[in-house]
Design a protein around this nucleic acid. Structure first.
Length: 288
DNA sequence: GAGAGTGTTGTAAC
DNA sequence: GGTTACAACACTCT
């Protein structure tokens, strides 16, 4: 579950499902997922989830019993949270791959399970094992937080600062936007979408951008992020209904994965290249 | 069988 | 210090 909008959707869903619940038992299926922490399960036992915050794509759980205890959760490429209530119904979710069908838990990609006092169970699934759940104290949590720059969708996002800083960078604009220390939350998909909307080529060097272009990027990223939070929610709904509708995401995308098809704006064929080691999609005509 | 993949980090090299 | 390029992580899908 990569991009910020989906992480935010998961956060909101989890808020409804697990906040205020006491963890009765934690089962770790794969030690790797909890950073080889043998005390992971015991340290979370009998703790009540107080809240769930998010910075960038990192989820931060807080607990009622101990204000110096945090659970950091990063989904990376394929991490998913599923909440199963006591009737066995799945009411939380992931991002719509095949694993969402025929749900039987725990299944082979389940890495950690949290059983609550009310018999509900929260599963963390992660096919590729890149994601992690990590216990942290306050200073470790602050350190993790400090690795993220401001989020474009934050109401107090400083657009002036963004423009000034962006224009000073010497990297390709796509590289800059993917850098979570600069701005948090934009992933590969939405960087391509943002740059298409802003009519800027991903390979453009930041210090060759005009102020107007930089401002367009800021505006576009906000628009894309906000719009995609809605889409993320929609994707999520489809998962909950388990209707097998998994392609909803792509309906909203304008360039990502659309190579070979006409640009929705100017009908030129969308091209795909590689920038910063990532698949990169753009319109060679209307992006400059 | 080969290649690509939604994210991040570390390292080496310039 | 900035930046670039790449490997690594483990697994599935085309």
């Amino acid at each position: 579950m990569p991009e910020l909008p989906e992480v935010e959707t998961v956060r909101l869903q989890l808020l409804n499902k697990v906040v205020g619940k006491k963890i009765k038992k934690v089962v770790v299926y794969r030690l790797r997922t909890v950073a080889e922490d043998f005390s992971f399960a015991t340290r979370l036992k009998n703790k009540t989830i107080k809240g769930i915050n998010r910075i960038g794509k990192l989820l931060i759980f807080t607990f009622s019993e101990n204000s110096d205890l945090f659970l950091l959760a990063h989904l990376k490429m394929t991490g998913q949270f599923f909440y199963i209530d006591k009737k066995g119904q799945v009411v939380g979710g992931g991002h719509g791959n095949k694993d969402n069908e025929n749900i039987i838990f725990p299944h082979k990609h389940s890495r950690v399970a949290f059983r609550f006092a009310d018999e509900g169970i929260l599963y963390f699934n992660d096919m590729r094992l890149f994601g992690y759940l990590k216990i942290a104290n306050k200073s470790e949590m602050e350190l993790a937080k400090s690795r993220f720059g401001p989020e474009p969708i934050h109401p107090e996002f400083d657009t002036k600062w963004f423009i000034t800083t962006l224009l000073q960078k010497k990297t390709a604009v796509k590289v800059a936007l993917l850098n979570q220390q600069f701005v948090a939350g934009l992933g590969n998909i939405y960087v391509d979408e943002t740059l298409w909307l802003a009519k800027v080529l991903p390979t453009r060097k930041c210090n060759t951008l005009t102020k107007k272009e930089a401002a367009a990027i800021a505006t576009a990223s906000k628009e894309i992020m906000n719009e995609s939070i809605k889409v993320g929610g929609t994707t999520f709904q489809h998962f909950i209904d388990t209707n097998g509708n998994k392609g909803n995401f792509s309906k909203f995308l304008k360039v990502f994965g659309k190579q070979g098809t006409p640009c929705p704006r100017c009908k030129t064929i969308i091209q795909k290249t590689r920038v910063a080691g990532r698949g990169t999609h753009f319109c060679p005509k209307c992006q400059k």
